[in-house]
Design a protein around this nucleic acid. Structure first.
Lengths: 233, 233
DNA sequence: CCTTTTCGTGTGCGAATGACACTAAGTCAA
DNA sequence: TTGACTTAGTGTCATTCGCACACGAAAAGG
């Protein structure tokens, strides 16, 4: 195989795709967005949204494009996970996939804008079906990464609506980390970080005391970030 | 572009390479192995060792192969860094590179087995020349990753000879982290982890007190690893 | 035997962490 | 109106952890 300008390709090229692990938070549980494949191979299986990378297209941009095309999603946070290229992962031929993971707020998506997918649905990370290709493995790595990231950077807010209560935030962290947290200590720590702004509103629902609403303040975060900082939950 | 079995490739494929950031420890400094390119583009520039991925070849295997072919290196530790695919990173065409980083012991390499490289040399991470492509950026990310990893997993030992003194180990950590560490606290912590075995030998050199030699013990590490643990320096 | 150089060791103080239980505020039904 | 129910919100204390810090020991060489 030989390129146009005298440059030698010693070997044929593996195909290159991007796949996205999209996290959402619903029903008190951490969820992943999956699509049901309409085409072979793995027709009828659940899989990660993704597709081929175009020549001249940035990898991150390709991931974002696939998300909006295939699921009508506008991701609040998008980070590369790594490349997965085990030879047998696609039964057709050697396909290398660059995986990304994303966080979306409830509401920042309209499912079923899909083209080649039969269906798109959220699945709790605890009850995932068997996935196509090596997508199960990819999701596992993504969950690990999310857990590590959430302890060190305030990315979790991208899974909550703009306005939220501290109890909701704690529920989110418990869902992500998979462990219970002490209420008082959690509030102490979170507020000590000084990343949240208390809104002049409260959320009242049900027959009980209303809760203070907060908003994540990116400006405050930028200040902290600029002078080396540690998050620590 | 259309594949053999009726499967549609909607777009041409970007080329796929692997590049390796190889770390070594010499002269009390953290070093990176670079090769001097013999071919255009960037002929005469320093660059990371790497090359094209073969179809059917695992990515990690490709990285290992390039290392041994191009630099006669047997890496003690090899980890993927991520994919770099900005459209303009290679002036010829769109090339996506999967980067790896590796740690090698002094002695586990014989430089200048290179084929298409003019020269291969170690460079202190503090005094790197300008690198070809986006390799400077890749090295930056690799150093960051090494710093993060070394705080949480005992990977540093892969940069030292089998037998080493605690002072050498401390020097290594200082070189990687780029900061001075307290001698007594360092020793306390390292020994408390119970990962090292004291050897019945000492290293005597120069006109001063000889130092106890230690060896990293993978078995002890495996035990710790098996029941969730934290490293913390 | 004196000098030089590196090796090896313990304590104490202030900060951070983690366990822990009750009152406050609201709704609804009796 | 009052009592029952549900979730919100708050402070203390004991323990652990992190970090600063200084000197005697061992060897070699002059």
């Amino acid at each position: 195989m030989r390129g146009k300008k005298g440059y030698t390709y010693e070997y044929a090229r593996p195909a290159l795709t991007v796949d996205c692990v999209v996290f959402g938070f619903g029903g008190g549980e951490l969820e992943v967005l999956l699509i049901e494949r309409g085409l072979e191979p793995y027709a009828g299986w659940w899989a990660l949204p993704g597709g081929f990378v175009r020549v001249g297209e940035d990898l991150g941009a390709a991931a974002g494009r696939e998300l909006s095309e295939e699921a009508g999603i506008d991701a609040g946070y998008l980070e590369q996970l790594g490349a997965f290229g085990a030879p047998g992962r696609d039964p057709r031929e050697h396909v290398v996939s660059v995986a990304y993971w994303a966080l979306v707020r409830p509401g920042d998506y309209r499912l079923a804008a899909a083209t080649d997918a039969v269906a798109a649905r959220w699945h709790g990370v605890g009850e995932l079906p068997r996935l196509a290709f090596d997508h199960g493995e990819i999701v596992g790595v993504a969950v690990e990464r999310l857990r590590a990231r959430v302890r060190q950077q305030p990315v979790g807010f991208n899974l909550l609506p703009e306005k939220f209560t501290l109890t909701e935030l704690q529920g989110l962290y418990e869902a992500i980390l998979g462990e219970g947290l002490d209420k008082r200590n959690f509030r102490k720590r979170v507020l000590a970080l000084d990343l949240l702004t208390a809104l002049p509103e409260e959320r009242r629902e049900g027959a009980h005391r209303p809760a203070q609403l907060f908003r994540f303040d990116p400006d405050k975060y930028a200040v902290l970030e600029r002078r080396g900082f540690h998050f620590e939950l």
